[in-house]
């Protein structure tokens, strides 16, 4: 078995990330970064009322291969990730870049047979994140997580010579590899990402997941799509 360095992602309800990070430290993690995001709800009534978000936290922990395995076991156990709606965890192979080892080559790929899942990132203008999730759902995705961020500054011709930082929605969708292509195409077409400035979409391989309910979603798909 070859070792893979990863970034371990956990998506849990708002307020829980601190506890997860504490647990991760016990397992030997050295650092972690927490971002705020929003999850999605599937309910016609709430959708009508405009309540379409649940508040989530996304925790990123850089991990080595052993730590990653350890984290998956420990955290899914302590936080009941195997139950529904308790949160999910997944790992994306990432290499820490340092100046000393700049000779290394890329050594992982999305097509790697060991990886069953992948994570689709879509970055679009603020407000279109939900459209993106809708498009993904139509193509068979179960849900997504939304993170607000901003793009790099673009100078604007105004009195104060501001560099406007355009607000962006980033959507994370973790799905099985087979489904990734239709989802990606659907988002790409529905959100017209072929036009300049509309957004970008990219996929990262996922080496391991916990707490994902892909199969159950499959059964319900008829009703939701």
């Amino acid at each position: 078995m070859v070792k893979i360095d990863t970034i371990f992602f956990t998506i849990v309800d708002r307020g829980k990330a601190n506890a997860v990070l504490r647990k991760a430290r016990e397992c030997g993690a050295t650092s972690g970064t927490i971002l705020l995001g929003e999850g999605t709800v599937q309910s016609k009534l709430l959708d009508f009322l405009g309540l379409t978000e649940t508040r989530k936290e996304i925790l990123l922990i850089p991990a080595s291969d052993e730590l990653d395995t350890n984290l998956h076991d420990q955290i899914s156990q302590s936080f009941n990730l195997s139950k529904k709606n308790k949160g999910i965890a997944f790992s994306i192979p990432f290499q820490r870049r340092t100046l000393n080892n700049s000779s290394q080559e890329h050594n992982i790929s999305i097509d790697d047979e060991r990886f069953n899942h992948c994570c689709i990132f879509t970055i679009v203008e603020k407000g279109r994140g939900m459209d993106c999730i809708k498009a993904a759902r139509a193509a068979g995705a179960r849900g997504g997580t939304l993170i607000h961020g901003h793009g790099a500054g673009v100078p604007v011709d105004s009195y104060f010579h501001l560099a406007i930082e355009p607000q962006k929605d980033t959507v994370l969708i973790v799905t099985r590899k087979e489904k990734a292509v239709p989802i990606k195409m659907r988002i790409y077409n529905d959100l017209e990402l072929n036009k300049p400035g509309n957004g970008i979409i990219f996929t990262l391989p996922v080496s391991r997941t916990s707490g994902l309910f892909e199969d159950k979603a499959e059964d319900r798909k008829g009703g939701t799509s």
Binding site: I7, L193, G197, N198, I201, F202, T203
Partner: peptide, 25 residues
């Protein structure tokens, strides 16, 4: 600073003629 790299499969159209608009993305 800490930097992490991973290869990715991206659907980005090449707007080489219009560099600034990709920059905003």
């Amino acid at each position: 600073v800490a930097v992490y790299i991973s290869p990715t499969f991206a659907l980005i159209k090449d707007f080489s003629s219009d560099e600034t608009s990709t920059a905003t993305v």
